[in-house]
Design a protein around this nucleic acid. Structure first.
Length: 252
DNA sequence: ACACTTCTATTGAATTCGCG
DNA sequence: CGCGAATTCAATAGAAGTGT
């Protein structure tokens, strides 16, 4: 029953699809199987391009995302065995009458009621997702980990930081009066938090010249060259090859 | 009149409580 | 901890309600 990190972090659309697109590869969130972009995968008589092959992989190994997810236990799905079985029948497009016969129930009203209860459950699930999503923005005490910049490079699980930790670090490295960076941290984890904070000084989607970038960084730290380089290296900023234009990598 | 949705009552199973 | 009592939960079936 091990469900990987990506599974929980990817958005609903990716989850429904069953795989996420990374820089250089496609990753199956159901099993962690990866497929490298740009390669061609032979399958029987056919040669499949990477993404096609990933779709094929899901059908072959997991039948469908639906089948895979519904096979998880109650703890994960929140569904009882009969409820899961019901969903399977519904997925197959069976009528109440057919389901009744197949599961040997005495009456179609039982199936009807299952449909009703499950629909209610769906509404509750939507409600819960929305509620918790809204809560996330407000609850600064939750020990939730900050998800690193999605485009950030040089980041792995070790650098997960709770909001509390991150708050502490920021207090340590930034002067409360002037908001200037006192000194640049040596530890990777701290660097990440500090850089993330600095990245917020830039307006998303806006294009900056190198000079403008320097100006902004200079306001909080003298050694703007180092900081600028770090922002790029850690994937917070991106730039044209010739350095004529800089912008914040999108966060969403 | 008909199909379809929602509510209610009953039952048995599972879980929790509380007492020694 | 063990065991029966009490409570809660899930499944069922039929009744009531709703809309066309």
């Amino acid at each position: 029953m091990d469900v990987n990190e990506e599974f929980w972090n990817c958005d609903l659309e990716d989850l429904k699809r069953g795989y996420v697109e990374k820089q250089e590869l496609y990753l199956c969130v159901l099993c962690g199987h990866t497929v490298e972009k740009g390669l061609i995968y032979p399958e029987q008589e056919l040669l499949l391009e990477a993404e096609k092959y990933m779709k094929y992989h899901i059908t072959k190994e997991h039948t469908s995302v639906f089948h895979h997810l519904i096979s998880y236990n109650k703890k994960l799905t929140g569904l009882t065995d009969t409820q899961s079985q019901m969903l399977r029948y519904f997925y197959e497009g069976k009528s109440d009458e057919e389901i009744k016969t197949e599961m040997g129930a005495g009456s179609t009203s039982t199936i009807r009621n299952h449909r009703f209860v499950l629909k209610e459950k769906e509404r509750q699930a939507r409600m819960a997702v929305t509620l918790f999503d809204l809560l996330k923005e407000k609850d600064h005490h939750a020990p939730s980990v900050l998800v690193p910049h999605q485009t950030a490079t040089m980041v792995d699980e070790r650098y997960n930081v709770t909001k509390e930790e991150s708050h502490k670090m920021l207090k340590k490295y930034f002067d409360e009066e002037t908001n200037k960076l006192k000194y640049f941290p040596a530890k990777e984890k701290q660097k990440l938090v500090v850089l993330r904070e600095i990245a917020t000084l830039f307006t998303p989607k806006q294009q900056y010249s190198e000079k403008e970038v320097n100006e902004i960084i200079k306001r909080i730290y003298d050694d703007f060259v180092t900081l600028r380089r770090y922002l790029i290296a850690y994937g917070f900023l991106d730039r044209k090859k010739d350095g004529s234009s800089y912008w914040v990598k999108s966060t969403s």
